[in-house]
Structures are given as C-alpha cells and as structure tokens.
C-alpha cells in the first residue's frame, strides 16, 4: 500500500481551507484561507497564540472537525476516508489513559478496535513500549507512572497500529521543562527511527525550532498562516544545537512572524 503511493505526492494538502464555527455570539472564523503542503517524512510544527487555529487545523486533518470551505486531502484522500484507512495516530494534550487498564491494556485499545489478533497485539505492544523506552512497564497501571511516562505511553498507543502520520496536539504542554527537553529528544529519535510524518502543535518557540523541518506560524482572528519556515537545521540534532547561530536566527524569525500576526490585530 505504502509503496504504491507516489513518493512525491503530499501527505497533507490544504487549499483555501476555511472553517467557521457558528456560536451564540455570531460566527467565529477559526481558519481562513489556509494553504499548506506537508511532504512525506516532514516534521511540521504549528505555532501561534491561542485561538490561531493550530489545533483546529490538526483536528481537521484528523476529521474531528469539518472544514466549511476549501479542500483538504490526507494521503490523497478525504480526512474521513484517511481515518478509515488508519492513516494517523493522534496524541492529545493529556495522556488520557484509561485508569482501569494497564499500560499494555491501554496500548491494546486501538488494536482491539481494529481487530488485531491477540498474538499480534502482544507483539506490537512489546515493540512500541521499547520504542518509547517504557519496556517492562506494560503491567503497571497509569497511576503508577509519572506524567512524562504517561504521555510516552499515550504516544506508544498512537504508534501501535502503524499509521504513517502522527498528529500531536501540545503533547508536552502540561509537563515541566526538564521532562519536556528529554521527551523532545526522544520524539526526534522516534521520528528518525520510524520515518513518520509528524504534525506537532505547540506554543513553545524553542520546542518548535528544535523539532521541526517546517515551522508554520499562525495568528488569530481570523486563524491564518502568517509564515512557513523551512528549517535549515540538520536532521541530527543534539540538545545544544539550541545555542547555535542558525537556531537563534530561526527562533528570531518565528518571533517576528508571531509579532507581525499580532500587529494588525488591535
């Protein structure tokens, strides 16, 4: 299936995407004329203040919201179709593990629903636990794990069924900075090891610059893209790359983009 896809075909392609919510206070323009192309293997970060539509865009890709205008394709299909084809795994801001299931049981949840055999479930659980460095924690219950470990388990859950896109909505937003640094490193390793396409929502500039090959800067009211930055940083990124001149330059450009978005808002 994967091999038959044209390598050059974009994984996510949005053209003139619009989404308007009807609320009690009148229509809210959550996304306006969003154009974006994400290639296979990209690590794309979405950054911007709250209300800029970064999460909404990710939810559109996951078919959790439905655009009111424009076109959006995921792997060349509509988002709904892509979901049925298990195109993506989604990681939410909270780990959202079921307290009544063990870590292994939580990872088994999507596998059960998708109808994998017991033997294959066990084999996949082992593999993804190793991938997120939680080997040996399968029999623990969520409350026995720290917040960072819980979030890693939720990433393992999203990886378990081989979706080639990983959508992450501020996955480390609730964690402290030390844990966050460590998980950022791990996500990069994971990305290098699996070759997945990752969509990552954040409001941390260093996080966005450190992780991404492509940074999408957004601004609110109406939610729109103000800048798309292709990162020149190498794929191999030690944590101290954040002190390099290139890193600081990109971070500066992101900050400028955010400020510009705010400028015409007043």
């Amino acid at each position: 299936m994967k091999d038959t896809l044209n390598k050059a075909a974009p994984v996510i392609e949005a053209k003139g995407l619009n989404l308007t919510f009807q609320t009690g206070d009148g229509p809210v323009h959550a996304l306006k004329d969003v154009n974006l192309t994400v290639e296979r293997g990209d690590f794309v970060s979405f950054i911007g203040p709250s209300g800029c539509g970064k999460t909404t865009f990710l939810r559109c890709v996951a078919a959790l919201e439905h655009p009111t205008g424009g076109s959006l394709t995921v792997n060349g299909m509509s988002p709904d179709e892509a979901r049925r084809k298990r195109a993506y795994g989604y990681v939410f801001q909270a780990a959202g593990l079921y307290p009544w299931r063990t870590i292994a049981g939580n990872i088994a949840l999507p596998l059960e629903i998708m109808g994998f055999s017991k033997a294959e479930q066990a084999e996949r659980i082992e593999r993804v636990l190793e991938l997120v460095e939680l080997k040996g924690f399968g029999k623990k219950f969520p409350w026995q794990l720290s917040g960072g470990m819980q979030q890693r388990a939720s990433i393992a859950r999203a990886l378990a069924f081989d979706a080639d896109i990983l959508l992450m909505d501020e996955p480390f937003g609730a964690l402290d900075e030390i844990v966050r640094d460590r998980l950022n490193e791990e996500v990069l390793k994971l990305w290098a090891a699996t070759g997945k396409t990752i969509g990552f929502v954040t409001h941390s500039i260093p996080e966005a610059v450190y992780l991404s090959t492509k940074i999408v800067v957004m601004s609110p009211r109406p939610g729109r893209i103000t800048d798309v930055i292709e990162s020149p940083l190498p794929k191999e990124r030690p944590l101290d790359i954040r002190d390099s001149r290139e890193f600081i330059e990109i971070a500066h450009r992101v900050r400028e983009g955010l400020r510009a978005g705010h400028g015409d808002e007043v």
Partner: peptide
C-alpha cells in the same frame, strides 16, 4: 477528549459503550 480518541480509531458506538462508557 476520550470520545475524540475513540473517534480517531473509527470506533463504533457499541465499542465506545463497552470499552469506555461502561467501565468509566
């Protein structure tokens, strides 16, 4: 969020009931 998660798995209403609502 819990309901959205199951939606991303394309879970049926029955699965949502047995795997999430009932144990919760």
């Amino acid at each position: 969020m819990q309901l959205d998660l199951l939606k991303t798995y394309n879970a049926s209403e029955g699965e949502t009931f047995w795997k999430l609502r009932l144990p919760a």
